[in-house]
Amino acid sequence: MQGLLAQGISVRYGARSVLAGLDLPLLRPGEVTVLAGPNAAGKSTLLRAIAQLQPHGGQVLLDGRDLAHVPMRDRARLIGFMPQSLPSGSSLVALESVIAALRAGDTLGARQADAAAMAVLDKLGIGALALEPLSALSGGQRQMVSLAQAIVRDPRLLLLDEPTSALDLARQVRLLSELRRLAGEGRIVVAVLHDLALAAQWADRIVLIHGGHTHAEGAPEQVLTPQLLAQVYGVEARVERCSRGRIMVMIDGEHAAG
């Protein structure tokens, strides 16, 4: 069975249950899936659970293999993870940080790793930042370097936590079209996004997460409806179809029923 299947994912922080047996539909290679939902809905937690960075109940299967039983080193080759933010205090240069992504868990030769890391930075259009210390980069630049760290091992599954939060318009397009391209090569891409307009434009599938469960999922036009948005976010929204099948979400105000 090709694809990512997450079933019955549950996570508790102490007494508080964040995810209560959440099921995701089968996410196929070639698809970009966006996880959306209100703050504290458990989107980041779900992403970390899938990446096996967070102890959890339930099962995560990638191409039929239970990820919890895949040795760490092999897992690193299968999964690329981009966290919400990179620490700002490091004096490592961008290129070194991407090389570390290759050499920390593996025994890759220096020459090979250096060239691969540089190639990824170039591909993302940030080759000029290669020798800048991370501490000298802006939030958006750090986010691009973080993407480079996630994709440099050429993973089958790419998990991204709010990858566009600090990016300007041009970089947002660059990052999202890169994600589309990576998916097009047969990868599974899952990203948490807050911007529903971006989600509508770039995702094949949107999963709305609410209250620790999958509230709704499907193609953008199926999920981004006034009814569902009112249920999940408690807002009054208008959804308009524009040219070329694009969807616009406009928020008129808070929902009367709250």
Partner: peptide, 20 residues
């Protein structure tokens, strides 16, 4: 050395690179 270097990028990052 490389594992320690990776840890400077954060615990989640190091783990996702395959560092125990």
């Amino acid at each position: 050395a490389w594992k320690l270097t990776a840890l400077r990028l954060g615990e989640d990052q190091a783990k996702s690179f395959g560092v125990d």
